[in-house]
Amino acid sequence: MAFGPPSGGTAGPPGHDLHHHGDVDAAEGLVDFAVNVQGDGPPRWLRDRLAATLDDLGRYPGAAHDAQARAAAGARHGRPPEQVLTLAGSAEGFALLPWLAPRRAVVVHPGFTEPEAALRDAGIDVTRVLTDAREGHALDPAAVPAEADLVVVGNPTNPTGVLHPAETIRSLARPGRVLLVDEAFADAVPGEPESVAGDASLPGLLVFRSLTKTWALAGLRAGYALGDPVLLARLAAPRPHWPVSTLALEAIVACCEPAALSAADQRARELAGHRVEQAAALAGIEGIEVLPGSAPYLLLHLPDGRGEAVRARLRAEGIAVRRCDTFPGLGPDHLRVAVRPPRTARVLVEALDTALRDLAVAA
Rank of each mutant, 00 (worst) to 15 (best):
A2C: 09
G4T: 14
P6E: 13
P6N: 12
P6H: 11
T10N: 04
T10E: 13
A11V: 05
G12C: 00
P14M: 01
P14K: 02
H20Y: 02
H21W: 05
G22R: 02
V24P: 00
E28K: 06
G29S: 03
L30M: 04
V31F: 00
G39N: 03
G39Q: 02
D40K: 05
P42S: 01
W45R: 07
L46D: 01
L50I: 01
L50G: 00
A51P: 00
A51V: 01
A52E: 04
A52W: 01
L54M: 03
L54W: 02
L57D: 00
L57A: 01
G62K: 03
H65C: 01
D66S: 02
A67E: 03
A67I: 03
Q68D: 09
Q68P: 00
R70V: 01
R70W: 07
A73S: 11
P81L: 11
E82R: 13
E82P: 06
T86Q: 06
A91G: 11
E92C: 12
E92A: 13
A95M: 12
L96A: 10
L97Y: 11
R104I: 02
V107E: 03
G111Q: 07
G111P: 04
E116T: 14
R120N: 03
D121A: 12
T127D: 04
T131A: 08
D132L: 02
G136I: 04
P141F: 00
P141C: 03
A143D: 14
P145V: 04
A146K: 00
A146Q: 03
A148C: 02
A148E: 03
V152A: 08
V153R: 02
P156L: 01
T160V: 12
G161A: 07
R174I: 01
P175W: 11
P175Y: 13
V178F: 10
V178S: 10
L179D: 05
L180S: 13
F185T: 05
F185G: 10
A186V: 14
A186M: 15
V189A: 14
G191C: 10
P193H: 13
V196P: 06
A197W: 06
S201E: 13
G204C: 13
V207L: 08
R209D: 02
S210T: 06
L211R: 01
R221K: 14
R221F: 12
G227C: 06
G227F: 07
V230K: 04
P243K: 11
T246W: 12
A248Q: 09
E250D: 15
V253A: 11
A254L: 10
E257C: 08
P258E: 14
P258V: 14
L261D: 08
S262N: 13
R267H: 15
R269Q: 15
Q278N: 08
A279I: 11
A280L: 13
A281N: 11
I285D: 05
V290F: 05
L291T: 12
L299I: 09
L300E: 09
L302W: 14
P303C: 12
G305Y: 11
G305D: 13
G307Y: 05
G307C: 08
G307S: 06
E308M: 05
A309F: 06
A312V: 07
A316V: 07
A316D: 15
A316N: 10
C324Y: 09
C324P: 09
D325Y: 04
A338V: 08
P341W: 11
R346C: 06
L348V: 08
T354Y: 11
A355H: 10
R357M: 07
L359H: 12
A360K: 15
V361L: 14
V361T: 15
A363N: 14
A363H: 14
